[in-house]
Write a protein that binds this DNA or RNA. Structure first.
Length: 323
RNA sequence: GGGGAGGUGGCGGAGCGGUCAAUCGCAGCAGACUGUAAAUCUGCCGCCCUAGUGGCUACGGAGGUUCGAACCCUCCCCUCCCCA
């Protein structure tokens, strides 16, 4: 039997963590975070990390594995997650990916081409071209060296233009040439992916509630504390949802009421983008309803049992912790 | 009561005789995504349809001037500010 991996995906505030925890408890699982911002230490409230006390003793991986000043990437995630999966399988337990970053999930399950990582010097040079002559300049440049990529990338999509040029200049081959070598680091595993889905209005209400909660729990103090501890304002995770808006509030861009409203709005938009991504993701098994609901969990468990996914745990009960 | 400013698409706000269904921003909707992805970017966005150098209704209301009006004139309605 091929090793199994479970995944709990879905838009923000859909109850992924609760479902992941329930499934881990039931099937002897360990959780692997699949959320791009939760990897950063110190960014807790805004990322809605499950507090250690609430983890029911279930191991959580890839949370708090990066310093705020690090630049954690999808490639790094794919490597780390694959390693975590192998380790968990080695313990005879079931790896459960939980998160909403579609790109990370794809990087893991379908792979990224084995090309070069970021070249900061080159990026700086390309960025300065964009700065001085306009982003379109990069597109024109790409058009000359890699017209296939130029056709795929919008003329003002700076990040993708920079990356495509970076790959070309560091390898001498167009980005699209590299794609053929793309393989998943967990190609030997069977991934059973569950995706949660909620009506937009429900997501909106849940997000509003969560934002109130984040402020009540001290998101503003968390940000202040990070800054006081010397985390630079340009640190990657400060650019993410919630943190970006709170940073702007602290800079006086808008007051707290407006900030809360904005965060709610941005969350709804983010949820929409996540759904667009996941809709395209093949082989997801969709469940309607929030992940903390017992009936939803029961439905998911029914599906899992029908597919015998939990078998990994049952086959090797020996080193299950206290079962 | 007197004086002043203004009423434009869901909101903010341009336009001040034709090329205006109306710049732009926001919100909304749809989408792209191969090492920054909670990021970055694209399209649509009055109504109708066979989706187009298509039809229709529109710029507070009613009239008027003009070949032609969101833009000019008259009256009315309504906001806001200042003085009483």
């Amino acid at each position: 039997m091929r090793p199994r991996v479970l995944a709990v995906l879905g838009p923000t505030a859909s109850g992924k963590s609760a479902l992941g925890l329930a499934l881990a408890g039931r099937y002897g699982g360990e959780i692997i975070n699949c959320d791009s911002t939760a990897v950063y230490r110190g960014f807790d409230i805004g990322t809605d990390k499950v507090p250690v006390e609430a983890r029911l003793g279930i191991p959580h991986h890839l949370i708090d594995v990066a310093d705020p000043t690090d630049v954690y990437t999808a490639a790094q995630f794919a490597r780390d997650a694959a390693a975590a999966i192998r380790a968990i399988h080695g313990r005879g337990r079931l790896p459960i990916l939980v998160g909403g970053t579609g790109f990370y999930y794809r990087a893991l399950t379908r792979g990224l081409f084995p090309g070069p990582g970021a070249d900061d010097v080159l990026r700086a040079r390309l960025d300065s071209i964009a700065e001085r002559r306009g982003v379109e300049r990069l597109h024109a440049l790409l058009q000359r060296v890699d017209s296939r990529s130029a056709a795929r990338i919008m003329p003002r999509d700076r990040k993708r233009l920079v990356r495509a040029l970076e790959v070309y200049f560091t390898t001498g081959r167009p980005l699209t040439d590299h794609f053929a070598q793309t393989t998943s680091p967990i190609a030997d595993c069977d991934v059973i992916a569950i995706a949660l889905r909620l009506p937009a209005a429900e997501t909106a209400a849940r997000v509003a509630r969560r934002v109130d909660d984040q402020f009540a729990r001290g998101i503003v103090d968390e940000v202040r504390g990070l800054l006081e501890r010397g985390v630079p304002a340009i640190a990657r995770p400060f650019g993410g949802l919630v943190y970006r808006q709170v940073m702007e509030m602290l800079r006086g861009v808008r007051d707290e009421a407006a900030t809360r409203a904005l965060i709610v709005q941005e969350n709804r938009r983010y949820a929409r983008r996540q759904l667009i991504w996941f809709r395209k993701e093949p082989n997801l098994i969709w469940f309607d309803g929030a992940g903390e609901r017992k009936d939803v969990q029961a439905r998911v468990e029914g599906m899992i049992e029908a597919r015998n996914v939990g078998e990994i745990a049952r086959e090797t009960p020996a080193d299950g912790p206290g079962i």
